[in-house]
Nucleic acid binder design. Structure first.
Length: 651
DNA sequence: GGTCTACCTG
DNA sequence: CAGGTAGACC
């Protein structure tokens, strides 16, 4: 099939390998064409090197009869101007090829003019033709069209015909016509009975040692070209007859037919053999080219393009770029991670760890990015060296707060409060410079709070002196670039209310170890980075109310459990760091277990458990308000919150 | 009436 | 953990 145009054919990368070879052999091809009977008018475009290359490439076509007939250039394309140009081009060839060309042209003319009305044509110098004699044998209709074309050119070229050569060639013409008839009959037979003919042809061709080798040696430049064109497409021209299946559409079949034809006329049709060899190579090139073109097209449209090599910590811009170049399967991942309105067809199942973590942290509410807060991170995991790891093998009972659990898992800011006790920075952690960053926490607008509250305003001077060492929200121990870290924080910092972030929630939980009933003043003092409006304050109070709720539920549960287990004395009810009750509480308020829970909290917890046990033992639980007495006791057991908690999360 | 709390529910 | 409600307290 004809290539649509030169630029497309040569401009596409996927064809480069084949095309390059062909272009490198432009000169050889040129000579081959000169020596080869041709009929196609594509060569009219040989007025320029580029167009000639394009034409030759563009006309590479399978040699199957059907395709030949359907893809041949229409004679109507020829214009007088083109003929003139071709003449000029041909004159540069030199006289050395004149004789040969004339002879070949006459042969072709004779073959093409099976009807006696057809006369010599293509005397025009340089007027070469792409249609081979074999092709003409295959398609009579095409011959007729070519004849019309030849006739059109005849009057232009006839004056150059040598009368003596003409007579000699006419004799050859007769021979060729006979052969033509034989070959045509043979083709018809093959078409009608392909299987039988296949075997026949195969045996004939191979038994005759059908190769282009011997013949090619006699054609000088043609042999080199033939070898090149064959080898460049991975086909051994000397052995393919033994390998390629003989099919009507198969090039091997055509070659065999040509060999058959050539062997029957060894002295006169070497030219045809060379020509066909070249055509075969060209067809192979074209086929390979088409295959690669299809492959390339399929490849770039495939959604399976792997992007594992893509930067997993790429920026959002990078994600956008990826989404535009990659299969949608890849981009979808980034879409979900970055929540960008990108087309999603499924990105890559390969998820960067950052994104995965962020997704697990999403609580059940929609989020938005507002209200930047900065985290001053100075010390991380400072207590790890001194803190005795708490046994944490058993899950806490009634772990119904999944949100909190998630937050604890990924936001080990408790480390900051561990540092409050030891005040020693841990090693191997990011320096303050490295982790000091701006984050845009996600905020959830509270129903109660109608007004947006600016965060990080009420910075108390004294609070600034206390550098809370906050591990910024699930930032892994891996040292990260600030940009990447910031993106992580953006996705992990989940603002629960106006001005309140997950850091505040964690801080409140840690404060609960000291105070179960914080006053409003205490909250204002220890949350200086939050503008404690009424709604914010109520929110904080509500948090502690929820903390107490969970706390008392656990106490009652374990007290009743002890009752069932038949604990003899209240003195036997103790709460140690390895007790199941403490594990449950620690899991709830300090899931990361990186905060040193004060001993006082253990004492208070033990007292609370005993109070519940006593009340239950005395059947006070029958009273609807039987817990109030316990609350009165517990509220008096609050201790002072360490001054380090005064440090604002926002600097 | 406002505030705080416990309790319940989702 | 948030929202709602009811009760107690001032």
């Amino acid at each position: 099939m004809l290539s649509p145009n030169c630029s497309n054919h040569f401009g596409t990368q996927q064809n480069s390998s084949i095309i390059t070879h062909s272009e490198d052999q432009a000169e050889s091809l040129f000579f081959l064409y000169v020596l080869t009977p041709v009929t196609s008018l594509d060569l009219v475009h040989h007025d320029s090197s580029m167009s000639s290359r394009c034409s030759r490439q563009g006309t590479m076509e399978p040699l199957s009869p059907a395709s030949q007939a359907s893809t041949r250039v229409s004679p109507s394309r020829v214009t007088p101007h083109e003929v003139k140009v071709t003449q000029d081009w041909a004159l540069d060839l030199g006289n050395q090829y004149q004789a040969k060309r004339a002879r070949v042209e006459n042969i072709i003319r004779g073959m093409a003019s099976s009807p006696p009305s057809s006369h010599g044509i293509f005397r025009h110098e340089g007027q070469t033709n792409k249609t081979t004699s074999l092709e003409m044998l295959e398609d009579r209709q095409e011959n007729q069209r070519n004849q019309r074309l030849l006739q059109h050119h005849d009057h232009l070229c006839s004056s150059r015909t040598n009368t003596e050569d003409g007579r000699r060639l006419r004799e050859e013409l007769l021979t060729m016509q006979k052969l033509l008839g034989q070959l045509h009959s043979r083709f018809i037979q093959i078409f009608e009975n392909p299987v039988e003919s296949k075997l026949d042809i195969s045996e004939e061709a191979c038994s005759m040692g059908v190769t282009g080798k011997d013949d090619s040696h006699s054609t000088g430049n043609n042999s080199d070209l033939e070898t090149k064109t064959s080898t460049e497409v991975g086909i051994d021209p000397h052995s393919e007859c033994n390998k390629m299946p003989l099919d009507r559409s198969n090039l091997g079949w055509l070659k065999n037919k040509l060999v058959e034809f050539t062997n029957s006329n060894p002295d006169k049709d070497k030219l045809l053999a060379n020509m066909l060899k070249y055509e075969i190579s060209r067809a192979i090139n074209f086929s390979v080219d088409s295959i690669f073109k299809n492959i390339s097209h399929t490849f770039f449209k495939s959604p399976q393009l792997p992007i594992e090599d893509s930067d997993k910590e790429g920026t959002e811009d990078e994600a956008v770029v990826l989404s535009s170049h990659m299969p949608a399967s890849s981009s979808s991942h980034f879409n979900s991670m970055l929540q960008l309105p990108l087309h999603s067809e499924g990105l890559i199942g390969q998820q960067p760890a950052i994104q995965t973590e962020a997704l697990t942290l999403v609580v059940q509410k929609p989020v938005s990015m507002t209200g930047p807060c900065s985290l001053n991170l100075e010390v991380k995991h400072s207590l790890h060296a001194n803190q005795t790891p708490l046994p944490y093998n058993q899950p806490a009972p009634q772990q119904d707060d999944h949100t909190i659990l998630h937050l604890k898992n990924n936001c080990p800011q408790q480390d900051a409060f561990q540092a409050l006790h030891l005040g020693t920075p841990s090693t191997g952690m990011p320096t303050p410079k490295e982790v000091h960053l701006q984050c845009d926490p996600v905020q959830v607008r509270s129903k109660v709070c109608s007004k947006p509250l600016g965060s990080s305003q009420a910075h108390q001077p004294e609070a600034r002196s206390h550098h809370l060492v906050l591990d910024c929200l699930g930032v892994p121990d891996v040292k990260m670039e600030c940009g990447s870290l910031e993106r992580t924080v953006k996705r992990t910092s989940y603002v629960l209310n106006e001005g309140l972030t997950t850091q505040h929630l964690k801080k409140a939980k840690l404060m609960f170890f000291y105070t179960r009933y914080p006053s409003s003043n205490i909250l204002k003092t220890f949350f200086p980075d939050v503008q404690l409006s009424r709604c914010i304050l109520s929110q904080l109070i509500k948090w502690f109310s929820n903390f107490r709720e969970f706390y008392y539920i656990q106490m009652e549960k374990f007290a009743r459990q002890a009752q069932v287990q038949g604990v003899a004395s209240v003195r036997n009810l103790t709460v140690g760091r390895d007790s199941e009750l403490f594990r449950a509480l620690n899991m709830h308020y300090n899931k990361a277990n990186d905060f040193q829970v004060p001993d006082r909290f253990l004492e208070v917890a033990e007292i609370t458990l005993q109070e519940f046990y006593i009340a239950i033992s005395l059947a006070r639980d029958s009273d609807p308000s039987w817990k109030k007495a316990i609350y009165k006791v517990i509220c008096k057991l609050d201790s002072d919150v360490p001054a380090e908690f005064r440090s604002p999360i926002t600097t």
